[in-house]
Nucleic acid binder design. Structure first.
Lengths: 266, 266
DNA sequence: CGTTCTTACCGTCTTCTGGTGTTATGTTAT
DNA sequence: ATAACATAACACCAGAAGACGGTAAGAACG
């Protein structure tokens, strides 16, 4: 009743979940006051303000005296969409499927996606391994792991994505040439992969140029959608991995347009 | 009685301290068994193994069946020397002194030193600010701070230093040109700054080339020592900051050779 | 000038993680 | 084959960090 956010909100700390719900609420209503949120979520004014500060830091909302308003949806989508992070199980399945492609000694590049993050947990055992990524959570995890050569892709930090980007990052990517690339995007049509933010697209494009074998990780929520920027045609990828919950009638069109699609089983 | 490590071991979590002591113990005895350590430190076998795993991950010891042996001292020094991290107070004082040089809007580069890390805590208030660093703990801290543009310097991760290095890092540094550089080294003679590891020297040299104003942070423990590689003459730095505990008779020679030395007061 | 909204500070409570030992299982050497 | 050693899995505990609300002080609006 207080919230009408869909998606699986488990596996998220209480404040994080509430913040995500608040974000959705704000986006839905366009602009609301702090007091509205107090009533809607049953917490104190203080807490609401703290949540809003955090959301503002991430660039999801804009605070002004008397309330907050939503930012352009592009930002919202690429943030909250991943915080209300649906489908842990599906991502894990996709990751397991992807893992099979990796062999000891290879070099692997990962982008800033939760799908890729799920893969990190599965690296153990496939050693030695060289992993390059611009995603801070992945970097942190990998730094604690032995037998993995971690190559951090630096750049300008983006709180929204918790990753590094911009020209410095693109340049770091250019300098590499990895065996594999696992990446994800925010939307996938029958023919192309899309993303909302230009600077992210820039880095992902560079990654595509710097890897021999390119794999796109897609959970079913991404399909049949589009976003502002066209990243690349699906045929640029050597493989597209989707999860089991993807309707077959959505997979066929991809294949019809020449993409190599594999289904990850739970 | 169990340990004869000198240095101030306060301000260090219990396991971290024990690991440092174990490392010292191993280096002293050359090679010991796990059981020896169990007796010497009064903890369970499991804990000893966990500690040794961590030390091995950092490259300080080598495990084999039946015990561990010490690695070449160079690695030991640049790791444990900083884990048995002496003089929190002095570092903080140096950091406070350094902070005064920073003004809002500037771009600052930090190397992988605890001295620089102390500085990070003082950034609040001097905003906006652009900070570039290759030191993972600093990156993590800064990523949580708003109003600071974080520019991560990527590269190959070194567990020993918890930072990024190698050619990729040097290249990332080359591409920059910051207003300020704060860095530290492991040893300082009357004329030069030194460091044990070549790859680290490489990065630090690049940093020196990429900053307008260069500041060397030196706590008194570093003075009158040397290490394998000569990094640069002290005259390359625009300023050398030492702590109050530094004997005056050690400071004068630096000045005699042309260095600009300032003393940070507690 | 007062009202409304915001921030700063503090105390309490809870939650979580890190550190640890124990037991059980695996592995290597003799 | 067996003993010594190493790892894995589980459970416990404590200390730390986080989350939250309340009050009070501050800032912006009318």
């Amino acid at each position: 009743m207080t919230s009408d956010v869909d998606g699986d909100t488990t596996e998220l700390s209480r404040p994080a979940r509430r913040q995500a719900e608040i974000a959705a609420y704000v986006v839905k209503h366009g602009s609301v006051s702090a007091n509205d949120l107090v009533e809607a979520f049953g917490v104190s004014v203080m807490t609401v303000h703290r949540d809003l500060d955090e959301l503002e830091r991430q660039g999801v909302v804009r605070k002004y005296r008397g309330g907050v308003s939503a930012q352009p949806t592009s930002v919202f989508e690429s943030n909250v969409a991943y915080r209300l992070n649906t489908a842990h199980a599906e991502k894990a399945a996709i990751a397991r499927h992807a893992r099979a492609m990796i062999e000891p000694g290879m070099s692997v590049m990962l982008d800033d996606s939760t799908s890729a993050l799920a893969l990190v947990d599965l690296f153990e055992g496939i050693t030695p391994l060289t992993v390059a990524t611009n995603f801070l959570p992945a970097i942190t995890k990998l730094s604690e792991q032995r037998d993995i050569t971690l190559l951090a892709l630096g750049g300008i930090y983006s709180p929204t994505h918790d990753s590094f980007g911009g020209m410095p990052c693109a340049e770091a990517v250019e300098a590499l040439n990895t065996d594999l690339l696992f990446c994800s995007v925010s939307a996938v049509s029958a023919t192309h992969a899309f993303h909302q933010e230009e600077e992210i697209v820039l880095v992902k494009r560079a990654m595509l140029r710097s890897a021999k074998t390119k794999v796109l990780l897609v959970d079913h929520a991404k399909l049949q959608r589009t976003a502002l920027h066209r990243l690349a045609p699906l045929t640029d990828f050597d493989m597209v991995i989707v999860d089991e919950k993807t309707p077959k009638e959505l997979i066929q069109p991809l294949r019809d347009h020449g993409a190599t699609v594999e289904v990850a089983e739970l």
